[in-house]
Design a binder for these strands. Structure first.
Lengths: 167, 167
DNA sequence: TCTATGTATGTTATATTATAACAGGTCAAC
DNA sequence: GTTGACCTGTTATAATATAACATACATAGA
């Protein structure tokens, strides 16, 4: 069975990789996770995820909506927003605040609240482990008696490829 | 001269403080900074800043616009967006991405790119030193060969007062 | 099998946030 | 006193997001 691969591990968006496997993997995990949660990865939801998985970029809700509408799904904003909301709620996608956009999760199944690295040149979005960052944030917050419940950590900059290209 | 005070130092939004001084200070510094930069703190801009300084919350552009319009300034969106853009460009205010809103800077003059602590109960927004956080973020990014140019770090949680109130 | 229930989808309508493009006014430098 | 830069204001529209309701579908219990 081609799908039963060892999860590609610290594979990140900027690294060269077999993207076909990357997205098939993600989809298989998504099925598993939603089933385990007693939720349903219905056709719109699944298709929305597939669209996000096409590349490591963030798409606006209306971009996703247009794609869905073109394929016979409803063409009103709630169709896209609801599908995306579902994906985010189940950890299958993330919302990028700076971009008002959504990106497929590249670490489905690992509970996490990652930092995002957004290339200003090619728009690729990668996830970075936020553990140490979150620790530092908690410490800074604690100095003011503040308790962090959720955090948004997003960086804008240049990915390795665009950096070499610029040089 | 009442205005020539020693800058209140690690004064933060959650701490009890003389808010009158707090905002007078900010305004005085804002004048100094814009003058030094060869920019002009015109009446709309100054008033927009005063409105943001009224408390340590974030206001949407349209909230600011309504206030300005009520005081005889223009009442079309660009009036507010332009004033806010100016304030942000000169480090007199910050944009909070999670809230699509703006808050007066509480550390005017210290070049900084702070982390924001947003209380989900009272909506107060405080700034926290982001040095260590930024270091951790840079390190995480570096593992993927990514170079961070700007970062957005925003935390949602409970401020000390709301935490005690909840207990 | 039938039906009650919860859940999902689709629609209409509207709210909220944001920007483009242009006209007129102010002000300081020359 | 005119030029040029910048600021304000306007009209118009774009982009993002949600409320509210109607219909359909899946499935568990009778």
């Amino acid at each position: 069975m081609a799908l039963a691969r060892k999860p590609a591990d610290p594979l990140h968006a900027f690294a060269a990789h077999d993207h076909g496997n990357c997205s098939r993997d993600a989809l298989a995990r998504a099925e598993a996770i939603t089933t385990a949660a007693g939720a349903r990865l219905t056709p719109v939801r699944r298709r929305a995820l597939e669209i996000l998985l096409e590349d490591h970029r963030a798409l606006g809700a209306y971009d996703v909506l247009n794609r869905l509408a073109g394929e016979g799904f409803g063409n009103q904003p709630p169709v896209a927003y609801r599908a995306l909301e579902f994906l985010v709620a189940h950890g299958l996608a993330h919302r990028i605040q700076r971009l008002n956009a959504f990106t497929a999760c590249t670490h489905i199944g690992n509970a996490h609240s990652p930092a995002f690295l957004i290339c200003r040149s090619c728009s690729t979005v990668a996830e970075a482990a936020a553990g140490a960052i979150r620790t530092a944030l908690d410490a800074a917050a604690d100095e003011q008696g503040f308790v962090v419940e959720m955090s948004t950590i997003e960086a804008l900059g240049l990915c390795p490829a665009c950096r070499s290209a610029a040089a």
